[in-house]
Simulated scan of single mutants.
Amino acid sequence: MAALDEARAHLAKAREFLEAAELTNDLALFNAAASNAVTSGINSKDAICLALTGRTRKSDNHAEAVAELKNAGAAGRDSSTTLSRLLKLKSKSQYQAAPVSPADAAKSIDWATRLLQSAQSVAPG
């Protein structure tokens, strides 16, 4: 699959997971909302990197994902802080016993939305 086609596939997933985040947030399922927002953001990162550099790495290391985005050009640099904030909720929403607050779930959706908008600007389709 060509890099731009792969970017668009990640963009479609980012949209789907963002919609799931919004729906689960509306149902007061805040852990699920934040988890879906994180997955959306990761897919947006992949779309941005693929569109701008032709490649993306798959890593469980959050710092590497943020660095990859930061090095992907202006759109990546502008989005890297947002991704960093969003990834800080990954463990809490998916692995830790403490629940995600309604405020943090709302923030995660806002951050995922920003990342999706950046991805759409570099990989329209």
Rank of each mutant, 00 (worst) to 15 (best):
E22I: 03
E22N: 03
E22H: 00
L23P: 06
L23A: 15
L23N: 13
N25V: 02
D26S: 14
D26L: 14
D26R: 14
D26G: 13
L27M: 14
L27H: 12
L27I: 10
L27S: 14
A28S: 15
A28G: 07
A28K: 13
A28W: 09
A28Y: 10
A28V: 12
L29D: 15
L29T: 10
L29R: 06
F30M: 03
F30C: 03
F30P: 04
N31E: 13
N31P: 08
N31G: 11
N31V: 00
N31D: 15
N31Q: 11
N31Y: 05
A33C: 05
A33L: 07
A33E: 06
A34G: 04
A34S: 12
A34E: 05
A34Q: 03
S35L: 10
N36Q: 07
N36I: 00
N36P: 15
V38T: 03
V38Q: 03
V38A: 06
T39I: 12
T39F: 13
S40I: 00
S40Q: 06
G41H: 01
G41W: 01
G41C: 08
G41M: 04
I42C: 06
I42L: 15
I42F: 07
I42N: 04
N43G: 04
N43F: 10
S44C: 05
S44T: 01
S44H: 02
K45M: 09
K45Y: 04
K45S: 08
K45F: 01
D46I: 07
D46G: 10
A47K: 07
A47H: 09
I48G: 03
C49L: 13
L50V: 01
L50S: 01
A51R: 12
A51E: 13
L52C: 11
T53E: 10
T53K: 15
T53F: 06
T53Q: 14
G54T: 12
G54D: 11
R55S: 12
T56W: 12
T56A: 15
T56P: 01
T56D: 10
T56Y: 12
T56S: 13
R57I: 15
R57Q: 12
K58Q: 14
K58I: 15
S59Y: 02
S59W: 02
S59A: 02
D60P: 00
N61H: 03
N61D: 03
N61A: 06
H62F: 06
E64V: 09
E64F: 09
E64S: 06
V66E: 01
V66H: 01
A67M: 11
A67G: 04
